[in-house]
């Protein structure tokens, strides 16, 4: 596995590792109870992270794939 793909672990650790700590109602963020916000936050961040990985991943520069 190429090193840039190791970033794929980040959402797993970020979301699941902190669930016990994020398991609370307050503070509300963007109108959402904290736990729900925390999950949404990682959804959006994952998408950004995947964009970065995609750009850095040398495999996407090959034209044939």
């Amino acid at each position: 596995m190429k090193s840039v793909k190791l970033l794929l672990f980040v959402p797993f650790i970020g979301l699941l590792g902190f669930i016990p700590a994020a398991n609370r109602i307050e503070p509300y963020v963007f109108g959402l109870p904290f736990l729900l916000f925390y999950i949404v936050f990682w959804m959006v961040l994952s998408s950004i992270l995947l964009t970065v990985i995609y750009k850095l991943d040398p495999e996407n520069r090959r034209r044939d794939s």
Binding site: L8, L36, W42, M43, E59, S65
Partner: peptide
């Protein structure tokens, strides 16, 4: 209530995993 959040959580993590797995 909140346990329902497991659905989007596992789905988006599956997509993250798929970047490596699916190709």
């Amino acid at each position: 209530g909140a346990p329902a959040y497991y659905v989007p959580a596992y789905i988006f993590l599956a997509y993250v995993l798929s970047y490596w797995l699916a190709p």
